[in-house]
């Protein structure tokens, strides 16, 4: 990143974080793609394929996006303030990065579901999302795949915001991890309301919210998710702006 102007550096930092992250995580993303293709081929030697492998990769991605958001805030906030940035500028940079990153990973997720639809269709495999022990949501066409995957960019932004709130709170104070108590159920609830396949994660966590939003339409779920994202972004920004830079550890 070459010398920035004061007015533009918050945006150029956000863009820089995005391009550097793409380079850094390119190997991880490639590995996820390869695994999502190779594993079904291996499993198909013994069993019929009835579950979307890409759905697993795409859902693991939600948690990774949250970890990246929290990790970046925890690590980079003191560094950027030490480089003469204000906390407001840094919060804006993270906002720019979060939008770009969620959009990029979301587009990749959509492309992955469509590609998998083509592969599974050619091999006569069943592309389905496991919702419970027995219930599965079948994806029978490219239209189904697109409809199912379309909310993923927003879902990634939701998890990015959740990670940002958690990372900022943990940096702000030693007891900041307590923010996990409201953030996790609210995030899973919004994800459940918006995603046809429901939230994904450890069963004991998912049980908190499963079923609570069954009567909501996808559009209500999207609206709820947008409200959660905006609220979460404002909370994360407020915490960042109020955070003292921690003393150095000897």
């Amino acid at each position: 990143m070459s010398n920035s102007t004061l007015a533009g550096r918050r945006y150029s930092l956000g863009l820089g974080l995005f391009t550097e992250s793409v380079k850094f995580f390119a190997g991880w993303i490639l590995a996820a793609i390869v695994l999502a293709v190779v594993v079904p081929f291996i499993v198909s030697q013994w069993n019929s394929i009835e579950i979307s492998a890409w759905a697993v990769a795409a859902n693991v991605g939600k948690y990774l996006v949250a970890i990246i958001a929290g990790g970046y805030i925890y690590t980079l906030l003191p560094i950027t303030v030490a480089q003469g940035m204000t906390r407001r500028e840094y919060a804006t940079s993270m906002g720019v990065f979060g939008l770009l990153w969620s959009l990029m990973i979301g587009a990749l997720a959509v492309a992955g579901f469509l590609g998998e639809r083509a592969l599974y269709g050619a091999l006569d495999w069943t592309q389905a999302i496991q919702q419970g022990d027995d219930v599965q949501l079948a994806i029978g066409s490219f239209g189904d795949a697109l409809e199912f995957a379309a909310v993923y960019p927003l879902a990634y932004l939701l998890y990015f915001t959740a990670g940002a709130v958690i990372g900022a709170a943990i940096y702000r104070s030693d007891g900041g991890w307590l923010v996990l108590v409201p953030v996790i159920p609210v995030t899973l609830l919004a994800d459940d309301a918006m995603t046809a396949g429901g939230p994904w994660g450890p069963g004991w966590l998912v049980r908190f919210v499963s079923g609570a939003t069954d009567t909501w339409s996808v559009w209500v779920g999207v609206a709820v998710t947008l409200v959660v994202i905006v609220t979460g972004a404002l909370i994360a920004r407020r915490i960042i702006i109020d955070s003292p830079i921690r003393p150095k550890q000897a």
Partner: peptide, 29 residues
């Protein structure tokens, strides 16, 4: 943006290279 406080050991991402650590300084005009 025109104040620099250099603390003992520096405020760096330890996993970064020296080169990119120095380049982070370009956040300052």
């Amino acid at each position: 943006s025109r104040i620099a406080l250099v603390r003992e050991g520096g405020d760096f991402d330890d996993t970064d290279t020296v080169k990119s650590t120095i380049e982070t300084g370009e956040l300052r005009p």
